[in-house]
C-alpha cells in the first residue's frame, strides 16, 4: 500500500514536470532558432524578416564564443543560425558541427567585399558567411592622455596607474600582450605565453579593472584614461563622448570576423539560408551596421551608408592597419597553456 502511493506521487511529479517541458507545442509555421551576441542585430530587421517570409524567429543571446560552443556541441542543439567568431569556426569545422551552405540559395553573397571572403578559418566560405568585422585597439580619452597612443606599451606606463582598463578575456588580453612583445598572436610556444603572463602580472598593479562591456561606460564617463576595446564598441563610445579616440598600435593587433553559420543538426536549413540571404541584402546590412555600430563586410551596404562611416578609420581601418593585424586561430589543445597563464594573471 505504501509503495504504490509513493510510486503515484513520483509519477505525478514527473508528469507535471514533463508537461511543463512539453509546453512549447507544435505549429505548422516554421520557427528559426537564432543564437547571437547581445545587442548584435537591429530587432526591427527580425520583424521585417518575419513579415516578408512568414517564418518566425526565436532569438536568444549569449556572451561568449565558449558558451556558443557548448550549446552547438550539445546533442539536443535547437539552434538553426548562429554567429561565432573566426577561431571558433575552425573548431566547429574540426568537430564536424557545421552544415555546408548551399551558395545558390544566397545570391546576396555577391555584395560581400572579396577582401573578407575565403579567409584562413574557412577557405572558400564552405560553412560561413561574414557578418561583422573589426579590430582590437586602445580607446583613450584625449583630455587625459597627452602622449601619442601608438604602442601597446602605453598600457604599461606607470604614469597612467589606476586609469587603465583591460579586457577580461583570455584570448584578447594575452593576444595583445604577445603583440606588444613582438610575438605571434597564435603562438604555440610555451615560453612566449610565459613571457606574456609575466608582462601581464607586472602590469596588474597599474590596471584599474579587467572588464568586458563595462569598459564602454567607464570610458564614456571619463572614469578611466584608456582601455582595450573592439573597434565597433569604440565607434559607439566616440559617438557618445567626442573626447575619446581609437588607435590600433604599431606592433599590430587582432582583426576578427563574426560569421553566420548553420549547425549541421538544424532541421530548417532552407529557411536558415533564407535568413542569411536576407542579412546579406545591402539595404538590410546597412541598416544593421548603422544600428549596432560594428563594421559591415558588405561592400554594397557600405555604399548605402552615410559617407562618414567609410571615412572613419575606426569603423573602416585603412589597409596598412589590417596588414599588421592577425586573425585568431583555434589553439587546439594548446589552449590549456593559455588558460593556465590567464588563471595565474587573474589570481596574482
Amino acid at each position: 500500500m505504501k509503495l504504490w502511493k509513493t510510486i503515484i506521487c513520483i509519477a505525478l511529479a514527473l508528469a507535471l514536470s514533463l508537461s511543463l517541458v512539453a509546453c512549447g507545442g507544435e505549429s505548422s509555421k516554421v520557427t528559426l532558432n537564432v543564437l547571437n551576441w547581445g545587442d548584435y542585430i537591429d530587432p526591427e530587421l527580425l520583424r521585417q524578416f518575419e513579415d516578408e517570409t512568414g517564418i518566425s524567429v526565436k532569438y536568444t543571446t549569449m556572451t561568449s564564443n565558449e558558451e556558443m560552443l557548448v550549446k552547438l556541441a550539445s546533442k539536443d542543439n535547437i539552434y538553426d543560425v548562429c554567429f561565432p567568431s573566426d577561431y571558433l569556426i575552425e573548431k566547429l569545422v574540426a568537430d564536424d558541427l557545421l552544415y555546408a551552405i548551399n551558395k545558390e540559395n544566397i545570391p546576396n553573397l555577391k555584395n560581400i567585399d572579396p577582401r573578407f571572403m575565403d579567409l584562413s578559418f574557412d577557405p572558400g566560405n564552405t560553412y560561413s558567411v561574414p557578418y561583422m568585422w573589426g579590430t582590437v585597439g586602445i580607446l583613450y580619452n584625449t583630455t587625459m592622455v597627452s602622449d601619442p597612443v601608438d604602442s601597446w606599451n602605453i598600457l604599461w606606463d606607470e604614469k597612467y596607474a589606476g586609469q587603465i582598463l583591460m579586457y577580461d578575456s583570455m584570448r584578447d588580453t594575452i593576444g595583445i600582450t604577445l603583440k606588444k612583445l613582438g610575438m605571434d598572436i597564435n603562438t604555440r610556444s610555451e615560453a612566449d605565453v610565459l613571457a606574456a603572463q609575466e608582462a601581464l602580472i607586472a602590469q596588474k598593479p597599474l590596471v584599474r579593472a579587467y572588464l568586458t562591456d563595462d569598459i564602454k561606460m567607464e570610458l564614456i564617463n571619463g572614469s578611466a584614461a584608456m582601455g582595450v576595446v573592439y573597434s565597433g564598441d569604440a565607434v559607439y563610445c566616440i559617438s557618445e563622448n567626442p573626447d575619446l579616440a581609437y588607435a590600433v598600435p604599431q606592433e599590430g593587433s587582432n582583426v576578427w570576423f563574426d560569421n553566420i553559420i548553420i549547425p549541421k543538426s538544424s532541421q530548417h536549413t532552407a529557411e536558415a539560408e533564407q535568413f542569411i540571404n536576407f542579412l546579406c541584402d545591402a539595404q538590410v546590412a546597412a541598416q544593421n551596421s548603422d544600428y549596432i555600430g560594428f563594421s559591415t563586410p558588405n561592400a554594397e551596404a557600405l555604399k548605402l551608408m552615410d559617407p562618414s562611416y567609410a571615412e572613419d578609420p575606426t569603423y573602416n581601418p585603412p589597409q596598412d592597419v589590417l596588414d599588421r593585424c592577425q586573425i585568431f586561430q583555434d589553439l587546439g589543445d594548446f589552449v590549456k597553456v593559455f588558460s593556465d597563464a590567464w588563471t595565474k594573471v587573474k589570481a596574482a
Partner: peptide, 22 residues
C-alpha cells in the same frame, strides 16, 4: 566590485567551468 582583479575561489571554479570548459 573587484573589477576582475580580486579572484576568489568561487571565481576560480566559475572560470574553470565556463571559460575553460574544463
Amino acid at each position: 566590485l573587484g573589477g576582475g582583479k580580486t579572484m576568489l575561489y568561487g571565481d576560480l571554479i566559475y572560470m574553470k567551468f565556463i571559460t575553460e570548459q574544463s
